[in-house]
Design a protein around this nucleic acid. Sequence first.
DNA 1: CCCGTATAGTTAAACGTTAACAAACAATAG
DNA 2: CTATTGTTTGTTAACGTTTAACTATACGGG
Lengths: 351, 351
Amino acid sequence: MVTLKDIAAICNVSVATVSNVINGKGKTSDRTAKMIMRVVEEKGYRPNAMARGLRMRRTNMIAVIAEDLAQFSTPPIVSGIMRCCEENGYSVILHNLRLYDRWSDTWYNQEKEYHSILDPVLQDVQYAGVDGVIYLAGHARNIRVEPEIPPIPCVMAYAYPTSEYVPYVVIDEENSAREMTEYIISKGHRKIGFIGGRYDNVHTKSRLEGYQRALFEAGIPCDPNLIYYGNWDRESGYEGAKKFMEMGVTACFAISDRMAGGVYDYLIEKGLKVGVDMSVAGFDDQIIASYLNPSLTTMEIPLHEIGRRSAALLVDKITEKDGEKADEEHKKGAVIKMPCSFIERNSVSEI
Amino acid sequence: MVTLKDIAAICNVSVATVSNVINGKGKTSDRTAKMIMRVVEEKGYRPNAMARGLRMRRTNMIAVIAEDLAQFSTPPIVSGIMRCCEENGYSVILHNLRLYDRWSDTWYNQEKEYHSILDPVLQDVQYAGVDGVIYLAGHARNIRVEPEIPPIPCVMAYAYPTSEYVPYVVIDEENSAREMTEYIISKGHRKIGFIGGRYDNVHTKSRLEGYQRALFEAGIPCDPNLIYYGNWDRESGYEGAKKFMEMGVTACFAISDRMAGGVYDYLIEKGLKVGVDMSVAGFDDQIIASYLNPSLTTMEIPLHEIGRRSAALLVDKITEKDGEKADEEHKKGAVIKMPCSFIERNSVSEI
DNA sequence: CCCGTATAGTTAAACGTTAACAAACAATAG
DNA sequence: CTATTGTTTGTTAACGTTTAACTATACGGG
């Protein structure tokens, strides 16, 4: 491995000079600068990341802590993060909470258990010397996290923090749900079932509000029997559909495509036709949505963009911290609410 | 941040002693060792990764270079890698070649273009000081890579290296394809279409061989018109199905679930019934397979396990290199061929 | 009482950078 | 011809570890 010292020896200058020309600092005559750059090029020198990190307390690495890499939403967000990182010269260290054997998706409000697995990861991350952290939630759990570890900037992607000082980027759940519900109403449906996650889940709550607002604005009374709380999974959809079918519901809005898939399961099993016996709408635009038959009308979540924006927020935070230190230390964290895109397919039809 | 020095000061010993007890080296009396550990605990001291890395030339980090994080197979493999890394105390730095704007999935044999994007990443990786590299291929491309950069151990996951000295783990494509074909034959089909990727693609070739072997062993002549070369994508399946339907084929074996989905598309469009008018089998067991209707009979690839095994191979390589240096420097790289699991569902029926 | 030998702990040099400061030198003004 | 300034380069001390080499202390045996 070729080091600064080697280059300096070859060029007959001090290491400091070489360091200076490489970082464009200090004053160096054109002549020496050119010579040094030539040798650097020739020998294929690259600064050693660890030495630099040790000295500068800056590694140009960020950590991404994902609740569950296997969840469909995670990889696209990570991709978005990496895109932004690539543009800004950062590398990404990935952590996956789901990997730890004690992890559970059903720790709804059990902070203690949750932290028993998050905290060691946070420690690791801290001592690895990353410049920042992005926390990337799934959506089944309901614990709000606050991993702002003392000196490390942090932002949340697809998650709601507890502190108002940590920036986060999420989607506009309420309006998206409202838009979908309005669409279903526009097709003439009045008895519309809602299939959500757990009743106390953040996402469920805001999407439910959107659903209710649409009903309200259309002058349709909101029947609590038309709300089914599931667990985001295929079986929930099946159960919800069963309940709704018995009640003469004509359309249902499942808050995830997988649950919508469960609705299909039930209808198919009973020999009924999706879109004629019951219309169904989903949320996510997972890949399955377009393979279902009839293809599923759903809401596309701008996952890649969520990743990009949260990473952008993070590099802002990192660089501004470098700049004016504790200037206005406690600036309120930015919050970005991304709109979703309505994807019309063939699962909701005119009544 | 609390450092060795801090701990040493509190305990009234030298940094060396603290370092020793932490790493269990040298001689230290029980009394001091206990005291030091207590203080370490109390202050929450963790060694600084960069300082340690700089000194020891060992970071306990590995880099994963993925061709395409968005491909369905990538996240589970990464997950498997991370699982093994977690068990062995490594962190994972992720790179995604697909991210680079100049990347193309259709660089079949254009090594130059390909290396113009791979090489800088390799450089980065090298100077980041990772202890090892896992290269994780997609399956559309056809370039064999050899990223064994001078001092860094490397293994390939779901990819075939050029050099016989780099270990790799893949699936037993030929036997898996044969098994599936035998199953289709056992259902009474004799005119079985094969839908593959590009004709010169490694995966396509070995799966085709398996298909042909099954036919051969069953005494069925192999008709080249029953082979359709696509590009792994949904549309290929559609086109293949169209061609085969006109030829009176009764079953087809698509080498990816997405292509199988394309077959469904065609049949549905023509008002035909999957499983009655034409049986279809896939490969991958992607999530869509179970949502298709009828659900798709397919081959499950042990992705998670592929990740784990390749990471295990890598940590072996890393630790043995630490041990006997250039002892038998050029040991032939291990190769692991994983079996796939046949998943019977409802898309192939008795003729 | 001295020597050899464990045992417990210390010192100091490295690892490859950066940054503050010092020094050398040349050019310009007075 | 000296003082002053400006430009270019060199010196040195960090950053937080690990580790080889060394020192000090205590203990028995002769």
